[in-house]
Design a protein around this nucleic acid. Structure first.
Lengths: 97, 97
DNA sequence: AAGATAGGCAAGTGCCGACTTGCCTGTCAA
DNA sequence: TTGACAGGCAAGTCGGCACTTGCCTATCTT
């Protein structure tokens, strides 16, 4: 469970996918592929992105809903709380004035 | 930089090391080896733990100080803030009543 | 109906990371 | 000074993971 979460976050491409889903919710596989190619110069196959999404979904970071032939993907950052909760954080949040 | 952080957290053994350093600060390499073996049944070589500590140190999660022939390791959870800061967290902290 | 579109499944490849083994350096005690 | 103790360096093995390729299914359009 926690293992899946950290493993999902380990890959930079997957983190970029999370970034894109944070910026625009409910994207399809092809939309994400297009964004990765144009905005991040990531020439990657559709299947590769699909496999990344499967990993992210297994970690609970992405939820998907099917509508007709489309499959929309949504970001869920709730599992990220487990990370900060595991180890004690220092008091000062490093405020930049 | 962020790459090193996520990669360091990807390995379960390294996360266990962070757990041990959170519980007891300033441990030496041999102390950590002993704790992993006894408390977590992790039969791992000393060099493996040393390499893990190097990865954690590169990620900024562990700081080390040398004193004579001993080298003490301390946990630094400050880099973990970057994770929660990267993606927007939902408002509700999921309070379990 | 047929073609286009959105996505899935499965096998294969190549590389990186975790781990071991062997040996070497530096520090302290007897 | 010799040996024990704490740690470091370097090469080698091995498994898992990211990615591709090829083919298949389902849905919508004309």
């Amino acid at each position: 469970m926690a293992d899946d979460l950290f493993k999902a976050l380990a890959d930079p491409t997957r983190r970029t996918i999370l970034d894109e889903l944070a910026e625009r919710s409910g994207q399809t596989l092809f939309e994400i592929c297009g964004r990765l190619a144009v905005k991040h110069r990531l020439t990657i196959s559709r299947q590769a992105v699909s496999q990344h999404l499967a990993v992210l979904e297994a970690a609970g970071l992405v939820r998907s809903r099917r509508e007709g032939r489309y499959k929309f993907h949504d970001l869920d950052t709730a599992p990220l709380r487990h990370i900060a909760a595991r180890w004690p954080l220092p008091d000062e949040p490093e405020t930049t004035p």
